[in-house]
C-alpha cells in the first residue's frame, strides 16, 4: 500500500483508515454503507474515495488487474508478427495496435492504483502467477491470418464484454473502458479488413483464414467465462453493478453478431450444431469444452509458461533503464536544489 498522499482519484492512507473505522460500528448500518447502497441503487458511480465494502474493493482490484494483465500479455501473440508483416502498411497498423494494447494495460493499472494497488506489485503478482490474465492469449499465432482473426474474433469478443463495462459502477474502471472501447473498434476493423484481403487472394490464403478461424473460434467463446450456472462470483458482481450482463448472455450476443460476419467473409465457423433458432430468435451452438478452458486457466495451455517467461524477461531486462532514469531524475533534482540555495 502506498504511503503517498494522492489526489484526484487517489485515496490517501489516512482517508482509507477513516473509511475503515466507519465499518467498525457493529451491526448498525453505517453512513458509508448507506451511501454506497444508495449510489448503486441510483445507478451512480462509486468513486475511489467513497466508502465501499472490502469485498467490492478486492473484487475491483482483482478484476481491473486481471484485465490490465490481459492487455499486456495480449501484446505478445500479435507482437510476434510485427517483424514478419507482409507489407509496410500492415506493419504500421500492427505496431499501432500492439501499442494500443500497452496503452490499455496502462489505463487499467492507473484505475487499479486509485484503489490503493501499486502497479509494480501487480506486475510482480502476474509474473509470480498469483494473478491471472485472459486464457485466450495462451494460444499460438501460427500464420499471419491469426493476426486478422484475433482482431475479428478476439477483439470482437472483447468489445462485447467491454461495452457494458463502460457503465460499470466503479468510476475509474468505467472511464478507462470508454477510452478502450473507442480504440478497440479500430482493432476489430483492421482484423476483418485483413481477412477480407486474404479471402480475395489465393486458395492457400483462403485456407489460412479458415484454419485460423477454426483454431480461434472456441477459445473466443471461452473468453466470456464459465457458464452462468458455474460462475460463483457473477451474482455478487451483478448486484454491485460491476457486471451488467451474465457470461452466457454476452456469449450469445457475440455468436449472433459474428455469424453474419463469417458469412460475409466466406468462412465456416467450426461448429456443426451452429444454426438459427427461429423460436428463440437466436443461434443455437454446440457445447464448449470446459475441461480445456479449466486446463488453460490452470496453466496447462500451449503457451502459458512462455508468455509469463517473456513478461518476466521484459521486466528484468528493463530494470536497469528504470534505475538509470530514477538516478538521473535524482541527480537533476539535487542540481536544481543546489543552484537554488
Amino acid at each position: 500500500m502506498s504511503e503517498q498522499t494522492t489526489a484526484g482519484d487517489q485515496m490517501t492512507a489516512v482517508e482509507r483508515t477513516t473509511a475503515g473505522e466507519q465499518t467498525t460500528a457493529g451491526e448498525q448500518t453505517t453512513a458509508g454503507e448507506r451511501a454506497f447502497a444508495e449510489t448503486i441503487a441510483k445507478d451512480q458511480r462509486v468513486e475511489p474515495r467513497d466508502w465501499m465494502p472490502e469485498g467490492y474493493r478486492k473484487t475491483m482490484i482483482r478484476q481491473i488487474a486481471q484485465h490490465a494483465h490481459s492487455e499486456i500479455i495480449g501484446m505478445q501473440p500479435e507482437g510476434a508478427w510485427i517483424t514478419r508483416a507482409p507489407t509496410l502498411r500492415r506493419k504500421a497498423i500492427l505496431l499501432a495496435k500492439v501499442q494500443d494494447e500497452a496503452g490499455h494495460g496502462l489505463y487499467l493499472y492507473s484505475a487499479a492504483e486509485t484503489l490503493g494497488a501499486d502497479r509494480g506489485d501487480l506486475t510482480r503478482r502476474l509474473i509470480e502467477g498469483r494473478q491471472k490474465y485472459s486464457s485466450i492469449f495462451n494460444y499460438p499465432t501460427l500464420t499471419f491470418a491469426d493476426v486478422g482473426v484475433i482482431g475479428w474474433l478476439v477483439d470482437g469478443a472483447a468489445i462485447c464484454n467491454q461495452v457494458p463495462l463502460c457503465r460499470s459502477s466503479f468510476g475509474p474502471y468505467a472511464r478507462a473502458m470508454i477510452r478502450i472501447c473507442k480504440e478497440e473498434s479500430f482493432h476489430q476493423r483492421q482484423g476483418y479488413e485483413l481477412l477480407m484481403t486474404m479471402m480475395s487472394g489465393t486458395p492457400e490464403q483462403r485456407e489460412m483464414v479458415q484454419d485460423a478461424t477454426n483454431r480461434w473460434w472456441w477459445p473466443s467463446l471461452m473468453m466470456f467465462g464459465p457458464p452462468d450456472a458455474d460462475s460463483p462470483n457473477s451474482a455478487q458482481s451483478m448486484a454491485w453493478k460491476i457486471k451488467r450482463h451474465s457470461n452466457d448472455e454476452l456469449r450469445q450476443r457475440f455468436v449472433d453478431m459474428t455469424v453474419p460476419q463469417a458469412e460475409a467473409l466466406g468462412v465456416t465457423l467450426p461448429d456443426p450444431e451452429l444454426r438459427w433458432n427461429a423460436e428463440r430468435g437466436q443461434h443455437d451452438f454446440g457445447e464448449i469444452d470446459w475441461v480445456e478452458f479449466k486446463r488453460v486457466i490452470a496453466g496447462g495451455g500451449p503457451l502459458n509458461a512462455q508468455r509469463i517467461a517473456h513478461r518476466r524477461r521484459a521486466d528484468e531486462e528493463g530494470a536497469w533503464v528504470r534505475e538509470a532514469a530514477a538516478a538521473h531524475a535524482a541527480k537533476q533534482a539535487a542540481r536544481r536544489a543546489g543552484s537554488d540555495a
Binding site: 503517498q4 494522492t6 489526489a7 487517489q10 482517508e15 473509511a19 468513486e47 474515495r49 467513497d50
Partner: peptide, 12 residues
C-alpha cells in the same frame, strides 16, 4: 505530481 494535489474530503 499526485502527492502535490490537495483535495477535499473523501465523501463527494
Amino acid at each position: 505530481r499526485s502527492d502535490d494535489v490537495v483535495s477535499s474530503g473523501p465523501a463527494e
